[in-house]
Design a protein around this nucleic acid. Structure first.
Length: 405
DNA sequence: AGTCCACAGGAAGGGCAGGCGA
DNA sequence: TCGCCTGCCCTTCCTGTGGACT
């Protein structure tokens, strides 16, 4: 039998250390975040002297280095603690995954619980008991504890933020500081004023990176991640320019470089070129869209399919036209149709996800509506068809409704 | 200037599922 | 196990709206 892996393992890799370009990697140097690191250090330093540290609220858009800096600070603090022989702990919770009061408290508690002790179960304890256990374990550990709540706006119950932000009042010996991270700049506006004042004692803002700053970050990482001479001159400027267009998103810049490198490697080339970056850009966008489409509920898939079919049949697809097609598709699929009001909302949701554009336009006498257009319809169609949620629609042709046709 | 279209989109409330405490 | 609460999805009803047409 043919050795199918031969070519893939045999070819020389472009990577020295692939991990360095992944999201989870925390580098030793964080370029262009010196100011934020210094600010955070000033805020957290009192903890090492046995004083109550302030709670901090960090905000900035995705890929501005918030999480990386927070984790970096944790690492630094633990090192410093060891040096000064002060117990220091760092707990990181991603509130997108751990999003209820109980689970947040449970996760932090279990971080401190000793091997032979009973862990706080997934469910079953009264919430206040979990909180008491948490206070007890932090106090027993002593020293300084930094609790990072990443994506803190995803927490379903504000009460946990209130409790945690005031935990120093309940601690007898130990000290704790809460770092809340959010990319929703308006998050604090809607917070209970009690939480706002205790959680946001200090605010640190992470501005988006500029293209030049992104280039520095990429150079830093590429030096560790990739072999020498594996980059064509224009690759890093292109990656950083594309990511800067987005909103200075370092994560996107790293993704572009990583995927471009993977493509180049698969093609058996020794150098990453601009062409690889362009392919990477398309691939990332398509993967994102496919991922979203796959996880859409059936009704949204039918709406999306209606939009695609509508785009093929109408020059300017309006909400009304789409709804007619949608009703047909529901009938064919044997699914009960939603009202036009609800479908209008589903259209808005798809618009917000960036899969379609729905622009409000006025056709004067012929009313006000939205003009709907689908991005990369062929690929989306393929994804929906593969999902098997809808029957075969090859023979379906919409009855054209629009008065303006 | 007024009319009128085809919706947009807000408000209110029903139905249902899941979580939670007793 | 039961009742209550909450959040989500959805419907119904409604008012508002931009601009072509009269």
């Amino acid at each position: 039998m043919k050795d199918v892996f031969h070519n893939l393992i045999g070819s020389e890799s472009i990577f020295k250390n692939r991990e360095v370009l992944s999201h989870s990697y925390i580098p030793d140097i964080l370029p262009h975040r010196e100011k934020q690191i210094e600010e955070l250090a000033k805020i957290l330093a009192p903890a090492l002297k046995g004083e109550n540290p302030s709670n901090v609220f960090i905000y900035g858009k995705t890929g501005t280095g918030k999480t990386a800096v927070a984790k970096f600070m944790g690492k630094q603090l633990v090192n410093k603690g060891e040096e000064l022989k002060i117990a220091t702990n760092f707990v990181y919770i991603n509130c997108e995954i751990v999003d209820t009061q109980y689970r947040v408290l449970q996760n932090i508690s279990n971080h401190f619980i000793r091997k032979w002790e009973e862990r706080v179960p997934f469910t079953g304890w009264p919430t206040d008991e979990v909180y008491s256990k948490l206070v007890e374990t932090i106090d027993r550990t002593g020293g300084v504890t930094i609790i990072v709540l990443d994506e803190v706006d995803k927490v379903k119950d504000d009460e946990v933020l209130y409790n945690l932000s005031r935990i120093n009042y309940d601690l007898k010996k130990a000290r704790a500081s809460i770092i809340g991270i959010s990319n929703d700049l308006k998050f604090t506006e809607f917070l209970d004023p009690r939480i706002k004042s205790s959680l946001g004692q200090e605010n640190v803002v992470f501005p988006p990176y500029t293209a030049d700053e992104l280039a520095d970050i990429l150079i830093e990482r590429a030096t560790i991640a990739l072999k020498e001479n594996s980059l064509e001159e224009n690759v890093i400027p292109l990656c950083s320019a594309l990511a800067a267009q987005e909103h200075g998103d370092a994560r996107r810049a790293l993704d572009l470089l990583r995927v471009a490198a993977e493509i180049a490697e698969r093609e058996g080339e020794k150098k990453i070129t601009e062409r690889h970056v362009k392919i990477a850009e398309n691939k990332i966008e398509l993967d994102r869209v496919n991922e979203i489409v796959k996880t859409l509920p059936v009704q949204s898939k039918i709406v999306l399919m209606s939009a695609i079919i509508g785009n093929e049949s109408y020059d300017d697809l309006t909400t009304g036209d789409l709804y007619e097609i949608y009703k047909d598709l529901c009938k064919i699929s044997g699914i009960s149709a939603l009202t036009q009001r609800r479908v209008a909302d589903l259209i808005s949701e798809l618009d917000m996800l960036g899969i379609i554009t729905a622009r409000v336009i006025s056709k004067g006498r012929y009313g006000r509506t939205r003009e709907i257009e689908v991005f990369s319809p062929d690929k989306i169609k393929e994804t929906i068809e593969k999902s098997g949620d809808l029957p075969d629609l090859k023979d379906y042709k919409p009855k054209l409704q629009s008065k303006l046709l």
